[in-house]
Design a protein around this nucleic acid. Structure first.
Length: 282
DNA sequence: CACGAGACCTGTTCGC
DNA sequence: TGCGAACAGGTCTCGT
């Protein structure tokens, strides 16, 4: 579910407070409680309970789709996977269905991890690099240049759609924003990454940034029952628009499966080409 | 190395 | 109405 823009929205809400949650920084932890044990990826439950008590929340940040909650000594990492969510509320509130873990604060509030599908995970680690170390570059960082992107695309011959979903290649994209970005850049999801020209790579990076930024601006996308605050779902060009007219040319949007993920594209705007003339000049 | 299948889970929607 | 199948924003592991 949540992809980079949804995670960024959750992070901003936790950092500053919102209608859906109190702000997190500054609160001191009294204790923790796991309602679904497997939510905790690391360390073991007894070590987790012992280590987290007494630590104070310093800051809330995002790396890829991870929520990074920096504490006095350790770092609490949360990955929402498909259906996770976080909220901060008073401890007197009723727990909700699918609440999986609680962090209780000394001031009578608590952080709650809710996750219907139980795929989400939390880590408490001294060094966040042990969990985040394998991630690829952040697409919105200015330091990640079109030239570097093109070089990375040339380094493999994988299909572009699964490649963009690979978090070790580029961090933060998920199924929605990948389909939207490939449409905006007019690139077919089957295209071999090393057949993209420098110009196409630059266009693709520009499209990735544009869809991510619009997603963040609209507080993410809420389909199904999660992330009801977002609005981006009303502005999809291709995602979940199978059979509906392309916003550019009117051709019905097509749904195929690529890398075992539902994939939406316009067969007229996004034409598959296996060879690329600019590639010959290498 | 690249890809596909299966696993992990629950809830909603679709088709008969 | 009921019921099973298909599908869902993610990632990991295993086999070819």
């Amino acid at each position: 579910m949540p992809e980079l823009p949804e995670v960024e929205t959750v992070v901003r809400n936790l950092r500053n407070g919102a209608t859906t949650t109190l702000a997190l920084p500054g609160r001191r932890i009294q204790s923790a409680e796991l309602l679904w044990e497997r939510t905790l990826a690391e360390p073991t439950a007894p070590l987790f309970y012992g280590a987290i008590a007494g630590q104070r929340v310093i800051a809330v940040d995002r790396r890829a789709k991870f929520i990074v909650i920096r504490l006095d000594v350790d770092t609490l990492l949360v990955h929402l996977r498909m259906s996770g969510d976080l909220r901060v509320e008073n401890q007197q509130e009723e727990l909700l269905p699918h609440d999986r873990a609680l962090i209780l604060f000394e001031d009578g509030t608590r952080l709650v991890f809710n996750d219907a599908r139980k795929f989400g995970r939390i880590w408490l680690v001294r060094d966040s690099g042990t969990v985040l170390g394998g991630l690829g570059p952040e697409p919105l960082e200015d330091s990640f240049t079109p030239g570097e992107f093109h070089r990375k695309l040339q380094s493999t011959r994988r299909q572009i759609k699964p490649l963009l979903l690979d978090q070790s290649f580029l961090a933060g994209l998920g199924n929605i924003y990948t389909d939207e970005a490939l449409f905006m850049a007019r690139i077919h999801p089957h295209t071999a990454s090393d057949s993209l020209s420098a110009q196409q790579a630059a266009q693709l990076l520009q499209a990735i940034r544009a869809v991510l930024q619009e997603g963040i601006r609209r507080n993410g996308a809420s389909i199904d029952w999660v992330y009801r605050g977002g609005d981006f779902q009303n502005h999809f060009a291709v995602y979940q628009r199978t059979g509906e007219p392309c916003t550019v040319c009117g051709t019905p949007i097509q749904r195929i499966v690529v890398g075992q993920r539902g994939t939406h594209f316009c067969p007229h705007c996004q034409v598959f080409t296996d060879s690329n003339p600019t590639n010959i000049t290498n």
